[in-house]
Design a protein around this nucleic acid. Structure first.
Lengths: 118, 118
DNA sequence: CCGAATCCTATAAGATACTG
DNA sequence: CAGTATCTTATAGGATTCGG
C-alpha cells in the first residue's frame, strides 16, 4: 500500500514505498475483522461454523472473504483436515498476537474518550 | 456506537452500551483522518487552506467533513478569528496527543509485518 | 478564506442460491 | 462442512457549484 498521506508523514514513518500505518489499519479495517480476531483470541483455534455462530450477524460471504484477507495478510492461519465431513480451523498467528495488545490500548483510549465526553 | 462484536468481546471490554475499540477505529477511520492528524501533529496549529495543501489530493468536501467529524469526536479543536479575510485554525487536542503514540506503535507493527513478508 | 449543498461514482456489505 | 457465485443495496468518497 503506497502512502497517500503527505510529506509530513514521510518524515515520521517509512512511507517511501508503502505506509505501515495505512497498511495496518487496512488489515484490521472493515466491519468484521476485529470481531473475528476477538473471537479467535478468546477461544483460540476455532472452526468455520463455530466462528459463524460466535460472530453474530455475519454472513457466509463476509466471513469467508474476511478470513481469506486476514490469512493473506498473515494475521490468522488456516488448517484444513482431510476428513469427512470437512474440517477447517483458524487461529491467530504470532504476528497477530503482537497486534492484540496494541488494539487493547486503543480500546482503553476509547474508554477514556467516552468518559471525557460524559 | 453500540457493540457489534460478539459475546467474546463483551467479556474483554465494556461493550454493554458501546464498544470502545469500534468507536476508536471509527474515529480515525476513512481515507483522510490519519493524514490530517499526521499533518497537525507535525506542524501544530494549522489553518484550513494550509491543510488543504499539505494533505495532498484532498478535496474541500472531504477536508471539511473530516475536520467536522474529528472536532465532534474531540480529536481536534477549531478556532475561528473574526478577521477579514476569515481565519480558522485547527490543532490536536490533548486527548489526541494520547492517541498518537498508540498509532505509532501500530505503524511500527506494520513495519514488522512488512519485513516478515519480504 | 472557509466552507456548505448537490449530485454522481466507487467500493463495501448483504441476500440468496448453489457446490465439492 | 466450508465455502463460492451472482446480484442487489448501502455507504464512502469525489466533482462541481455556490454562499457567508
Amino acid at each position: 500500500m503506497k502512502c497517500e498521506h503527505n510529506k509530513a508523514c514521510k518524515d515520521k514513518c517509512p512511507c517511501m514505498e508503502y505506509c505501515p500505518l495505512g497498511s495496518a489499519l487496512k488489515m484490521i479495517g472493515g466491519k468484521w475483522k476485529i470481531p473475528i480476531l476477538c473471537a479467535l483470541q478468546k477461544d483460540g483455534t476455532t472452526r468455520y461454523n463455530e466462528l459463524k455462530q460466535k460472530v453474530r450477524g455475519i454472513t457466509n460471504t463476509m466471513l469467508a472473504s474476511s478470513l481469506r484477507e486476514l490469512e493473506e495478510d498473515g494475521l490468522i492461519s488456516r488448517t484444513q483436515y482431510q476428513e469427512m465431513p470437512l474440517r477447517v480451523e483458524y487461529c491467530l498467528t504470532e504476528q497477530c498476537d503482537d497486534l492484540m495488545p496494541i488494539l487493547n490500548q486503543l480500546a482503553f483510549w476509547g474508554v477514556k474518550m467516552h468518559e471525557t465526553k460524559s
